[in-house]
Amino acid sequence: MKRYIAYSAILGLVWCFVHGTVNVNNFILGVLIAPFIIRPFKTLFPFDQDFSFANAIKKIPAQIKFLYVLIVEIIKANIMVAKIVLQPKIDIKPGIIAVPIDSKTDLGITAIANTITLTPGTLTIDVSDDRSILYVHAIDATDPEGVAQSIKDDLEKYTMEAFE
């Protein structure tokens, strides 16, 4: 039930943004419609686990920090790919690397996979069946261990804090 309230509030805010005017009327309308959206997608969310507002609020600073790291990484990624594209002769050594991950929950794995895709030189392709390995396509795959290590140190630390 608590999850319904939290997700309804988020969807209400999303409805305000989609509508274009943020005010109380729109927010209440969004909150009233939200349960009809949440119900069909219930199996995608961990409704059987305990949920507390205190924990959710406690994670917000970590999520803001993660957002900051993400923006910096996106800009770095763009400059790096732009350099590759603008080279007169394209000289790359791509490849698919297996990267072991520590995240256990669905949300944590989704967050780390999307973050990997948006950060320099790497693109998530698939997750293994036992959810312990991500297959990552890297533009520069000459040093597989280095890529795996940099993902673990630079990104997973922040997603683990923010979403697990």
């Binding site: 790919v81 590759i84 948006l118």
Partner: peptide
Amino acid sequence: GLARLPDVYNRLHTTTKIGTL
């Protein structure tokens, strides 16, 4: 990048990262 890079995976690099920004 979509036109210049060799295969589908490398092309996805450019369309997701650069396209997003």
